[in-house]
Design a protein around this nucleic acid. Structure first.
Lengths: 354, 354
DNA sequence: CTGTTAGCGCATTCAG
DNA sequence: CTGAATGCGCTAACAG
């Protein structure tokens, strides 16, 4: 009655298009405002009225239009996640976890996967996300270029949580303590009696790769040893294989610490092909603890990262970043501690050399 | 001038909030309508006017508000993707590809990852997505329950493209020809001279698992052999290992066809532990061709699926599903052909047994 | 406790 | 070729 179909031929409920708030109001015999109150869970409503409205809502199968709501509230209820298209295990696991956690927290989650995390690509992705008026962004697997973009965005007002990036260059961060993990791995090898421990790193544009490299170096130094030049892979089993083939020719090397499990897998294979036994001739340690790690030949000693925790914390942080008016106090560094998983790919070196 | 700030204290451009179309219009000295035309690339505009507007847009850093646009056009520009939280390689690869392809096609992509693809969970996810007024949904790794939901949605009007699900039960589908792939694998083993070929399947709620099972059965029958009872795993290396350990005790088995590479990996490990040589004693074939397959011990013969193609096709199909008013003609079954990759884990059986 | 009145920022008629 | 109205569906003040 109150809505006299002003000319655009408002259809009766039950016709083609989805019901709107006015339809519910009409059916319940209240104003559309009251419907709004019910939907937003306001307290000042006569229980009976609420019930009538709720019944009408159910009957019509009404669902609020989030675009309309976003328009007026200026809040989209959406967060964005930027990740890499490449399927490395860690980042993609984190990506999934974040998506799930974001939804659990009541957000819509808009994802964008980039072929490469170059400055321009990340920048575009952020624009894309801002066009949707996302309330916050989670940026995964950041390299330095991506971090620049993150910083720039902070200035513009969209909070960006950086996951697994350098934990010093962004305001809101969360990640695993890579250096500590590498330290665990290296120390394990050291404890076993190894002194010639080679590190096969990831690409050094990746902050994780650098963190693991540094952890290894530090542990070596603390043991009074001079770390040899590290070798650099690209995270793939193929690169691990290539490097492993080289290492197989060197007699001095008794242990390899690979920066991820895939590369370790490649090393295992190369060593096997060269007839060098793991762990009798060479010990191998990986990083990540992929589900297959326990079933490699031999079962791989590695460093486990709790990606689920990372994902959940990322969302928690994003929520405080969105909600709070910047405590401006010290941003606690959010670091999750990894764990060493000892399996059968490591053992004491065959002959001690001192 | 034309916008007399009716009381809500419209702020000057450059103040806190993002510029709106009216700001651009004012700066360019045109009506906001003209700005709209420029943005939507209409043709009937004096070049000079267009330029002035474009300049103003750039100067202000204006970006259209997608919520407002969605409200009036009733099109969100968003598609939804429903996947599983579990990180199986195939589905998660497809998920990433779809996200990327969706964005390339100009959509916003809203993702939801479910712990389990139960009917209720999928149903919720669809609701969630419909609340955003997504224009279409891609559902990945469907089992039968999920397919029911998909069908139900079709009725309500949101097109749902089912990826890797049963290709007969949904209107819009795309996937790899699982049975053909399994046939390739089985035939390869048959050609090598194997007759006792065991199949380690995935969980049979998964349509992929059923497809591969059927492909294996068919190939066996066509070779005049009676396939033995298949064994069922859960896609994990752990389950492959368990089954492999059993198989290692059986002398009659000379070949194993595992429904994915992870399970094959577990089988490899179990066989190795039991001192049975691959491929000399037992041949093993996987499915998926994960990046590590070539670096296992020994390198794994497997079936490669082109997941990138699947992702792109999924988006293409979704676009026609959204755009076209249902040709209602025969829905061509969209099947992508897999490819056999022969590596070192397969060979002729040691002794022929006929 | 509930209804009325205004817009949110944009696209879509329709006039000029 | 351009501008002036109108309303998308909803929430946010205000009135009652």
């Amino acid at each position: 009655m109150t809505d006299p179909a002003t000319g655009t031929a408002r259809q009766r409920p039950g016709a083609g298009r989805p019901p709107v708030m006015a339809d519910v109001a009409r059916l319940a015999g209240v104003s559309h405002q009251t419907v709004s109150r019910v939907i937003n869970g306001q307290s000042n409503l006569r229980p009976e009225t609420r019930l009538r409205v709720e019944e009408a809502i159910r009957q019509l199968g009404y669902r609020p239009n989030s675009a309309a709501r976003a328009l007026v509230t200026r809040r989209s209820g959406t967060i964005g996640v930027i990740g890499s298209k490449s399927g490395f295990w860690g980042p993609s696991t984190v990506h999934r976890t974040i998506q799930a956690a974001g939804r659990e927290a009541g957000f819509f989650v808009s994802s964008v996967n980039l072929p490469d995390l170059t400055r321009d690509a990340v920048s575009d992705a952020v624009e894309h996300l801002r066009d949707q008026r996302v309330e916050g962004i989670v940026l995964i697997a950041a390299n330095d270029e991506a971090l620049d973009v993150a910083r720039a965005q902070e200035a513009v007002g969209v909070p960006v949580v950086v996951v697994e990036g350098s934990l010093y260059n962004a305001r809101w961060t969360i990640g695993v303590d890579q250096a500590a993990g590498a330290g665990l791995a290296t120390q394990h090898l050291l404890d076993l009696g190894h002194t010639e421990i080679v590190h096969l790193s990831g690409p050094l544009q990746w902050t994780e790769a650098r963190g693991r490299l540094q952890g290894w170096q530090l542990a070596m130094h603390q043991a009074g040893l001079r770390p040899s030049q590290h070798l650099e892979g690209d995270w793939s089993a193929a690169s691990g294989y290539r490097v492993g083939a080289e290492l197989a020719r060197r007699d001095d090397v008794t242990a390899v610490f690979a920066a991820n499990d895939q590369m370790a897998l490649g090393v295992l294979r190369a060593l096997w092909e060269a007839g060098r036994s793991v762990p009798d001739d060479v010990s191998v340690v990986g990083f990540d603890d992929i589900p297959e790690a326990a079933y490699l030949i031999p079962p791989l000693t590695t460093v486990r990262q709790d990606f689920t925790a990372v994902g959940h914390r990322a969302i928690e942080i994003l929520q405080t970043a969105i909600g709070g008016p910047e405590p401006d106090a010290d941003v606690p560094e959010r670091l999750i501690q990894p764990e060493l998983i000892v399996r059968a790919s490591t053992a004491a070196p065959r002959e001690t050399e001192n």
